[in-house]
Amino acid sequence: MSYQFNAKDVLVTQLGEEGVAFNSATNEYFSLNETSYKILKGIENNTPVEDIIQQLEAEYDISTEECSQAVHNIIRTFIEKKLVVEA
């Protein structure tokens, strides 16, 4: 499955290691921790989800299964909040 960043409605700003996303269509702000910011930026940069998982797995020294599950949970939240869409 691939995902596309909702560039039409969403602005993302980095704040230190974390970030903030604003959806202009829903007028909602979202605080992003370091990990969720990296995932959203990866999707915005058209990085395949498998590559995002590998990068985070190496950085945080966690299992592929645990990392994959966490990344997909965050992506589901992004979809619900209309920050990304399924492509």
Rank of each mutant, 00 (worst) to 15 (best):
G19V: 00
L15W: 07
T35W: 06
G42Y: 03
S36T: 12
N46S: 14
Y37S: 06
E28A: 10
S31V: 10
E28F: 14
V20I: 12
N23H: 04
E44R: 15
E17M: 13
E18N: 12
Y37I: 04
N23G: 04
N46D: 11
I43L: 15
T26F: 13
F22S: 01
F30C: 08
P48A: 08
E28D: 13
E18S: 13
N23F: 04
L15T: 07
E28P: 03
N23A: 09
S36H: 07
G42C: 03
A21N: 07
I43R: 04
V20M: 15
L32W: 06
P48K: 15
P48D: 09
L15R: 01
L15F: 08
V20C: 07
N45T: 03
N23R: 01
I43Q: 10
K41I: 14
G19R: 09
P48H: 05
G16L: 05
K41D: 12
N45C: 11
T35R: 07
K41R: 15
Y29P: 10
L40V: 05
G16Y: 05
Y29T: 06
E44S: 11
P48I: 12
P48V: 11
I39V: 09
I39R: 05
E17V: 10
E17D: 13
S24L: 11
Y37A: 03
E44N: 09
T35K: 15
N46W: 08
F22R: 00
E44V: 04
L40E: 08
K41A: 11
G42K: 01
K38I: 10
N33D: 15
T26R: 05
T47S: 02
E28N: 06
V20Q: 11
K38N: 08
N27H: 05
F30Q: 04
A21T: 03
S31P: 00
T35V: 15
F30M: 09
G16I: 01
S24V: 12
L40T: 00
P48W: 07
N23L: 00
S24Y: 13
E34L: 02
T47G: 00
E28R: 13
T47E: 15
S36I: 13
S36P: 11
K38M: 15
N23C: 09
A25C: 02
S24C: 15
F30D: 01
I39G: 06
E28V: 04
G42L: 07
T47A: 07
Y29I: 10
E17N: 13
T35G: 05
A25P: 12
E18W: 00
A21W: 04
G19Y: 03
F30L: 08
E44D: 01
G16A: 07
G16V: 01
N45F: 11
N23K: 00
T47N: 09
G16S: 02
Y37D: 03
K41W: 05
L40F: 07
S24D: 14
Y37N: 00
G42M: 01
A25G: 01
L15A: 05
P48R: 11
F30T: 08
N27E: 04
N33Y: 02
V20A: 10
E18A: 11
T35I: 10
G16E: 02
N33L: 05
T26G: 00
T35E: 12
N45M: 08
T26E: 08
T35Q: 14
N23Q: 01
T35A: 11
S36V: 01
E18Q: 14
I39L: 12
F30H: 14
E17T: 15
N46L: 12
A21D: 09
E17Q: 14
I43E: 02
L32S: 02
K38H: 12
T35C: 11
Y37K: 07
N45S: 10
A21P: 09
